[in-house]
């Protein structure tokens, strides 16, 4: 899988590249408009992570326009520090697949990248595995072996997020934000998240799933196949 990251902030670029490489993706980078345009016209990428606010006269939206003109079908995730509705609407209108506002968690970016790649690579048969746990994304259902694994909606989302980021540390805040969104915004609620994870762990154990959700320091959780 080949991914292009277009970002002019060096430290930010490093972070994204590091995270993507950890997932065994082939990562290329561009830190300005011209090299970005050159790369998108010469190669085909499975996903492009594009910072919309490049420090240049021409910004990320111009790159999107160029892509559209070139009739490229690369999946694009826009990253923006502006978190403005206008950027989001303009970007999605120009054919971007997703929009992510800075600051974001790397696990969130990875989940979005994977979702974009998945949507483009497989059609219909949309599932991911960890151990004997299988998650059918389009059906919004989980299985342990062949047995349906019954969860409520939030539990399903937690599980999906952890499985998507399997073998990676998922920050508590990232998990909370992904699953409960704006409805949870205080560190007081980490006890609450802990209790949710405890419930899922118990359910997984009862269903004899061969996956384990570890607490990593106080920072977050990591799902691993046993």
């Amino acid at each position: 899988m080949k991914i292009l990251v277009i970002e002019d902030e060096a430290a930010m670029l490093d972070n994204i590249v590091d995270a993507l490489k950890g997932e065994q993706y082939l990562v290329e980078t561009a830190d300005n408009y011209d090299s970005a345009i050159q790369k998108v016209s010469d190669y085909q990428y499975d996903c492009i992570v594009l910072d919309i606010s490049l420090q240049n006269t021409r910004d990320g939206l111009d790159i999107l326009r160029e892509l559209k003109k070139l009739n490229k079908a690369d999946g694009v995730i826009i990253v923006s520090a502006k978190n403005s509705l206008d950027d989001k609407v303009a970007g999605l209108d120009l054919g971007a697949d997703d929009y992510l506002a800075k600051p974001f968690h790397l696990s969130e970016l990875l989940a979005r990248v994977k979702a974009v790649i998945r949507r483009r690579s497989f059609s219909g048969n949309d599932h991911i595995n960890a151990g004997n746990l299988k998650i059918d994304i389009s059906q919004q259902s989980a299985y342990v072996g062949e047995q349906p694994f019954i969860t409520n909606r939030k539990e399903f989302e937690v599980l999906l997020y952890l499985v998507t980021n399997k073998n990676r540390l998922v920050n508590r805040a990232a998990l909370a934000e992904h699953v409960w969104g704006d409805h949870i915004d205080s560190a007081d609620n980490f006890d609450f998240i802990y209790s949710q994870i405890k419930n899922i762990r118990k359910k997984l154990k009862d269903a004899k799933a061969l996956v384990d959700i570890q607490s990593i320091y106080g920072v977050g959780y990591k799902l691993q196949a046993e």
Partner: peptide
């Protein structure tokens, strides 16, 4: 502030990925 914040959070997330952290360091990180 968004970009520096994003960088800082992501750097620490990457740091947390290392398995070599002791409990004391992990607490600082947290």
């Amino acid at each position: 502030l968004q970009t520096p914040l994003a960088i800082a959070i992501n750097k620490l997330e990457l740091l947390a990925e290392h398995n070599s952290l002791g409990d004391a360091q992990a607490e600082l990180l947290e």
